[in-house]
Computed example of a mutant assay.
Amino acid sequence: MAQVFPPYANTLARAVLLGAAALGLGGLGLLVALPFTPHVTRQDITIEQPVQFSHEHHAGGLGIDCRYCHTAVEQGRYAGIPPTDTCMTCHSQIWTNAELLAPVRRSLAEGVPLRWQKVHVLPDYVFFDHSVHVNNGVGCSTCHGAINRMPQVRQVAPLTMGWCLDCHRDPAPNLRPASEIFNMEWTPPADQAAQGAALVAHYGIRTEHLTDCSRCHR
């Protein structure tokens, strides 16, 4: 009987099957990994703003406190974006004709707010309250990084569910005294494990309920 398939047919068939399996597994792995890539998390991506405002200059060089611009951070869910009037309390006196600040002057003259682009974006189904965190020992730099060294703000943390849960399961390593919440240069002391545990008690944090679904999904 004549041979229908060439001798290498079995080898070719196995190679095709293995290739298809590898392609399928690779595609599945890509789908699993995709949510954790900067393309999705927006981590370390610089976003163009209507004015190239430098936190490095204002918060770092001039030492302006976060609360001067983000006035609602201690009382509300949102930290708040400063109105043009806040910018002009200084820039009506200094850099009054700087081209860089032309959009700010135009905003004031026309009464139209600057359209700042949000950098830290959470899904609509996630509830986050700034005041709860800053009033319970979580400093600005814990989530936002060294803002005082950023010419342009970028998101340094992934802000994924897993990242948030890591802190909610064990908040002690990230807690600091109330006096250090807005200190962008704060670093954990050598005995942070002991101090963090003490701060959990001081702030009255009930760790057994921090991972309840209703904490973040309401």
Rank of each mutant, 00 (worst) to 15 (best):
A9M: 09
A9F: 05
N10Q: 08
N10P: 03
T11F: 03
A13N: 08
R14N: 13
A15Q: 08
L18H: 03
L18A: 11
G19T: 11
G19D: 09
G19A: 14
A20H: 04
A20L: 14
A21Q: 04
A21D: 06
A22T: 10
G26C: 05
G27R: 00
G27I: 01
L28M: 06
L31R: 07
V32M: 09
V32A: 09
L34W: 15
L34M: 05
F36A: 10
F36G: 09
T37D: 00
H39V: 06
H39A: 15
H39L: 15
V40F: 07
T41Y: 01
Q43W: 00
I45D: 04
T46V: 15
T46P: 00
P50Y: 02
V51P: 06
V51I: 13
Q52N: 14
Q52W: 09
H55S: 15
E56T: 04
H58V: 13
L62F: 02
C66A: 14
C66R: 04
R67G: 15
H70D: 08
H70V: 10
A72Y: 06
V73W: 02
V73F: 05
E74I: 11
Q75W: 05
Y78T: 13
G80T: 02
G80R: 01
I81S: 12
P82V: 00
P82Y: 01
T84M: 02
T84G: 10
T84H: 06
T86Q: 07
T86D: 14
T86N: 15
T86K: 14
T86S: 15
M88F: 12
M88E: 13
C90E: 06
S92W: 13
S92Y: 11
Q93L: 10
Q93D: 14
Q93M: 10
Q93I: 01
I94N: 11
I94F: 08
W95P: 02
N97F: 05
A98V: 08
E99Y: 00
E99S: 13
L100Y: 04
L100E: 14
L100R: 01
L101H: 04
L101Q: 07
L101C: 00
P103Y: 00
V104I: 15
R105A: 13
R106A: 13
R106Q: 12
L108P: 05
E110H: 00
E110A: 12
V112C: 09
L114R: 02
L114M: 10
L114E: 02
W116Y: 11
W116S: 08
Q117C: 07
Q117G: 13
V119A: 02
H120R: 00
P123T: 03
Y125V: 06
V126W: 11
V126L: 15
F127I: 10
F127M: 11
F128L: 14
F128A: 14
F128T: 09
F128W: 08
D129F: 06
D129P: 04
V132Q: 09
V132L: 13
N136W: 00
V138W: 11
V138T: 07
V138P: 01
C140D: 05
C140S: 05
S141H: 12
S141D: 12
T142K: 04
C143W: 10
C143K: 03
A146Y: 04
A146F: 03
I147R: 10
N148F: 09
N148Q: 12
M150K: 05
P151Y: 01
Q155G: 02
